[in-house]
Design a protein around this nucleic acid. Structure first.
Lengths: 160, 160
DNA sequence: TAAACGCGGATAAGTTATGTCCACGATTAG
DNA sequence: CTAATCGTGGACATAACTTATCCGCGTTTA
């Protein structure tokens, strides 16, 4: 049936952060969207979320745009994912153990439900993995995969 | 904005498996739904998915119902989650690196996108955590939390 | 033979995801 | 000063998904 899925905006946001980490000045939404071949108006929404989360700062006006607020090695992939997806855990316990003819006692319910504990632990493992990788790490990966001249060309294109 | 979330059916399915691990015979959907205070018709859908995934087997007819196909210590929480949520990863790479004015070269694209690799690694960590816990483990947790008589009462109620 | 049960398909309401569009204020180039 | 560029927030629209409900069918048993 339905699968647990991450918003598509996460992919956009991470790639945008990598580009921003290589830019020399503020980059407008228009440029980021054009560079990635994606919707400008929708990307704008996601960039605003990054802004609200404090990962990027915006400059209004004629030569405005976005820039990272911190060095790229201080922004983790988890930061970006949480900024887009929100802070709520993927699993929400509805306490069904308290339902039905044999509800769990209030005493037993002082601890979170065992199922919930397992799910939260798994999500912590997931978050830990995403916290281990920074935007700077991803930039290095791109350089390795696509060649050392890649970001030079990106900067040239951004200057156009 | 939107958050990555797991289907509510996962919670139901896990709790049902714990109950099934303690049952002495096949348990019908009706009983499982009543026990958990949840929708019978909708739960039926999820149980059918567990059946298709091979985690439970069904008996049709007058005294039918569901039972686990394997010992509870050979069914992991991950098995149940994947049965309900599907096998597809939460993150789907749309290869936006191939878009725009500076697309990644076909050579560079032999490897998966770096962003994708990070996301997949995180999901593997998540799966590994869920694979560490079995339905039998959860049953032990319930006994610890709610007392040693809990499942005795459950079996009594199921026999009603 | 009737009641209890699982199975699969059709259907539908509510929510979320994915965008689009516009009015507004800020900034800057000419 | 005026145009053009840019971010911001809100309203709006549509497709997809979640969360169910219901029905007819075949199976099994009291």
């Amino acid at each position: 049936m339905g699968d647990m899925k991450m918003s598509g905006g996460v992919e956009w946001a991470v790639h945008c952060c990598v580009v921003l980490s290589q830019a020399e000045g503020p980059v407008p939404t228009q440029r980021l969207a054009e560079f990635h071949g994606i919707s400008r108006t929708y990307l704008a929404k996601h960039l605003q979320q990054l802004s609200r989360a404090g990962l990027v700062s915006s400059t209004e006006g004629r030569v405005g745009g976005y820039r990272l607020t911190r060095p790229a090695d201080e922004i983790t992939v988890l930061d970006v994912v949480l900024a887009i997806e929100g802070l709520e855990p993927a699993f929400r316990c509805t306490e069904i153990r308290q339902n039905g003819p044999l509800p769990a006692s209030p005493t037993a319910c002082k601890r979170p439900c065992g199922v919930n504990r397992v799910m939260q632990a798994a999500e912590q493992a997931w978050r830990a993995a995403l916290r281990e990788v920074t935007i700077a790490d991803l930039a290095v990966t791109v350089t390795k995969d696509a060649g050392p001249q890649t970001f030079v060309r990106v900067r040239e294109w951004l200057a156009t």
